[in-house]
Write a protein that binds this DNA or RNA. Structure first.
Lengths: 227, 227, 227, 227
DNA sequence: GATGAATGAGCATTCATTCAT
DNA sequence: CATGAATGAATGCTCATTCAT
């Protein structure tokens, strides 16, 4: 997808096209996978002809790389904010978890694509996406390390703990049902507590970051796509 | 896929064919997904022509349902054994976790297919697989309930804890690398400890079930396919 | 097949494509039957790739239904004209027979497909085609009934006579050879006479409708397809 | 299909196999056409495996040629009998028509295959079948010629009349319904009368040959297949 | 006599993609 | 900006047929 339209504000109907295409892709791919959805169906979902699609994107795989990169960049952006605005390993980790869980609960389609379609990317493009993912995970790694150094966390295998926590929190996008019995904030706070247990930091008080995170998610994920 | 060949020992190339097909499918699907692998490639991987494939299976989707059901039945079988042979919520949960982790670390391909291709199944067949998955999760649910009742576990939202734990342990199949820095037993015991923390049962002693589980996995997962 | 191209004159290769496809189908199917001709061969005969074929049609069966419906609609249209422009059972039947025979002699391929491939249509589509056929036969039925009522025809079993006559006249498409010994007008008039005998109306004078019918056939069957 | 089993009487289950195969072919082909039915379905209908089928027949096309030849030989045989046992063009034609109609009404499946699948036969085999058909039609031709010579028939174009009559009478196999409103004998006698009209021989008395023909059809068409 | 296993070629259909307009 | 037309390659699957047992 061509990088940017330059102007600061959407001007013509066409401006929304890229956005609509990405939205259609996310909707469809999150449900049936990259290989399970054809270009024609994608075009129909976006309200365009399949030929017009190619005006806005490169190949199908380019579109996937674009969608994944944008999603990951938003995750990175959010994690960066948390690090800037929350000090101390405990509060930071608490916020990171609540943010991750909220993002995955509020944006299950985007996150499922980001998390599950890496294998559909070939060599070169995969590398770029993986390094973005690593960039995101680095916030977790750093915070866990920090907590271990300060004595706030007690974990023997911090790498494994990080992976275990990420898998646990990412899983929310696979099972959370907004119409189900659990309130969103319960899930977020609940996972924050589980994380504190996993990290051996139970005595820490768990600040409720749900509203703040919700605002952050809203700010970062709404709008024309975080390009 | 037709049920069984009956005879006790593989005699001709044909005997192993069904098995070879399933193995090929697991290998390929775990890496590129159900929709990412064509019938011809599957056949080649199994050492057959694509026409011969259809001698042994119904449709491609039938094969997927077969592979998933067999995998899940093995998981159920193993969980059943744990429940029979380990008494008390703590020891049981400990064994369930170590078993799940070991299975996912030793059989990452099978478990990734089982866990990730549900969406490729259409209506009727999906139901069958989902009920098997529910059957498996019931062992976890029951054990958590038991531990909460006995006071061994302290969790506020047991449903969420179960899902969080399952996602966490299942994730092992996505990241564990046998050539990597972590020993398999460390991962298994490590997750058992994380689970005990998640469930608020830290004071419980964590019996090392790795060898026993390894035997169980070997017994249940080797052989002609757990039909 | 999409309805029409609107423009009054063929301009580019694409305009005639639908027409060319139907013509190819009629040519091939009339000789080897619907199931005897593959899509690739059809495409080749139409001068397109098999993928392009699907740009213009739905399924192969859709194309058959389209071809049959168009043929039958033309038959109906012609019979309607006869009924409007010829009064009295005798003259009408005479014209209907000559028209039917001429159509089947001049358009043996279209009529053979219309007459012989009903079984290749599945349920729903078959019904539509059958009702068109019934519509056409209704003109014969009505005319025979009229002739019986007026005393012009003497037949005991009018239903059987209608079927017998239709089979007899339709058969022309199966054996008439324009390069053979019989002139087209002889065949048409000859059948008109046989029909008058079958209906017990020998004393009636047989007007030669060959030229008029030929004009009608030319008018109705030429052109972009009678959609 | 290998020509004969030699012995005069069916001995083993296998003896019936060829017969069952032909019967299955006739059943299926008459409904969906030669190209519309696969070998596997044919085998299933005959109660055999598709491989076993090939024990009894050559290729699929060989089987078709066999089925068609046998049918036509039976038609020829019956026409021969008529010629031997009925003297005079009028009575002979009367019997030929009633026999043809009865055969097509009682054996619609066999006759539809005989009549409609010639195009599925390639070059060499088609010639053989066509000459059998010609042999059959020769009885009609000869009888019409005889009637014209003796003054019993008055037709101008005897060739066309023959074809018209054959098409008319053959059509019975396409529309006659034993459960419908017309009795079989009505159809047979009715067509005999239409034929006499077509041939300009109305003054001739129409002997009811239905019972005799029925016997002939029963004799010739029952039994192990008229090989 | 009968069949499971096997296959190359073919089936109807869809794929992602290009391009002239 | 947008699309209808076009296609080579691939899709999942079935074809008629052979052959060792």
């Amino acid at each position: 997808m061509r990088t940017g339209t330059g102007a600061g504000m959407p001007q013509r109907g066409a401006v929304g096209a890229e956005e609509r295409i990405r939205a259609a892709a996310v909707r469809l791919w999150s449900e049936r996978g990259f290989h399970g959805v054809g270009i024609r169906e994608l075009a129909e979902e976006a309200g365009l002809s399949s030929a017009t699609l190619y005006h806005y994107m490169g190949t199908k795989e380019d579109l996937l790389a674009d969608v994944m990169s944008r999603g990951l960049r938003r995750l990175v952006l959010a994690a960066e904010r948390v690090t800037q605005q929350r000090a101390g390993a405990g509060p930071r980790m608490n916020a990171l978890v609540q943010l991750h869980v909220l993002t995955h609960a509020l944006r299950p389609r985007e996150t499922r694509v980001v998390d599950g379609e890496l294998r559909a990317l070939s060599g070169d493009r995969r590398g770029g996406v993986m390094s973005l993912r690593d960039e995101y995970e680095r916030y977790w790694r750093a915070t866990i390390d920090e907590g271990r150094a300060s004595g706030a966390f007690r974990v023997e295998a911090p790498g494994m703990a990080r992976l275990a926590l990420l898998e646990m929190c990412t899983g929310v996008a696979r099972w959370y049902d907004p119409g189900g019995p659990m309130a969103l904030s319960e899930v977020a706070l609940g996972h924050a507590q589980l994380a504190s247990r996993v990290l051996g930091a139970e005595e820490l008080e768990l600040v409720d970051e749900v509203d703040w995170c919700r605002g952050l998610v809203g700010e970062i994920w709404s709008g024309p796509g975080g390009g």
